[in-house]
């Protein structure tokens, strides 16, 4: 099949960037979307032109590196899939496809379709963990975890940190990302001692990074390749409110509001 690509090209963070058109011809419908881009890049490089830069690695939907806005939809037309899991059979022959990077103030473009998502790491560093230094753990079966809690925690923990939720959100909020980790750890008994401190710090970091607020549009859950529900955001808000009013030392440090 043949398609026409309209691709965002930007040489570096300070370059204004713009859309450039490329033909992609003789593409197998069984090729993945990224394999189609490989093909276009092979053609560019054979002519000595710089390839289209895009982030990718595992190509099986788990590492969270790939991050393309395809025709205005984060990760493209397939629900519950990362860009690397989209195949060309999802497009019609002769289609024109527009490819852009994630757009968010907190995700500056580094080059072409690659953005800087280190803000997400800093949200985790602020509190997205259980403080459990290596060595002191008791027997794993000493703490019972109800199956339902473990299953719901796993639903939230499935987040791959790709940032599609931010890209899809009209406010560029990182609420789904942050709430997924707050919920994963908040649902596990091991996460209880730091529950208040965690949510306060992670939310504060999210705000500090310049992500927008959540106004419950719900675009994030539709874009999420792991189909994480916005229920986790409700949970985060509840935890946050409880922490701010009843959270002890953290409340004194940060105060309500």
């Amino acid at each position: 099949m043949d398609v026409t690509l309209r691709v965002w090209r930007q040489r570096g963070p300070s370059d204004p960037g713009g859309i450039v058109e490329y033909p992609a011809t003789g593409v197998s419908p069984d090729a993945s979307f990224l394999e189609m881009l490989d093909l276009v890049n092979e053609g560019l490089m054979a002519r000595g032109e710089p390839p289209i830069a895009f982030a990718h690695d595992c190509r099986e939907g788990i590492c969270g590196a790939c991050s393309l806005m395809i025709d205005g939809i984060a990760h493209g037309p397939m629900a519950g899939a990362a860009t690397c899991q989209v195949h060309m059979r999802s497009f019609s022959d002769g289609a024109t496809i527009t490819i852009e990077p994630w757009r968010a103030a907190a995700f500056p473009v580094l080059k072409d379709l690659i953005v800087d998502r280190s803000a997400l790491d800093r949200i985790i560093a602020a509190g997205g963990f259980v403080t459990a230094a290596t060595g002191g753990a008791q027997d794993a079966n000493a703490v019972l975890v109800p199956k339902e809690a473990a299953d719901r925690a796993m639903d939230a923990a499935a987040c791959i940190g790709c940032g599609a939720c931010v890209a899809a959100c009209p406010n560029a909020s990182a609420s789904l990302f942050t709430a997924a980790k707050v919920s994963h750890l908040g649902l596990m008994p091991q996460g209880q001692p730091e529950r208040s401190r965690r949510v306060i710090r992670m939310v504060a970091q999210m705000d500090a990074e310049g992500f927008g607020d959540c106004t419950l549009f719900g675009e994030c859950q539709d874009a999420c390749p792991k189909e994480i529900s916005i229920d986790v955001i409700a949970r985060m808000h509840r935890d946050h409110m409880r922490a701010v009013w009843f959270g002890g030392e953290e409340r004194a440090e940060t105060g309500p509001g």
Binding site: L144, P146, D151
Partner: peptide, 22 residues
Amino acid sequence: GNIIDQCAAQGVPFAREYGGLL
């Protein structure tokens, strides 16, 4: 065995039986 203990302490959501055991 220590690895499983360590990971459980970190809150890794391992599969569980209904009684809560791993």
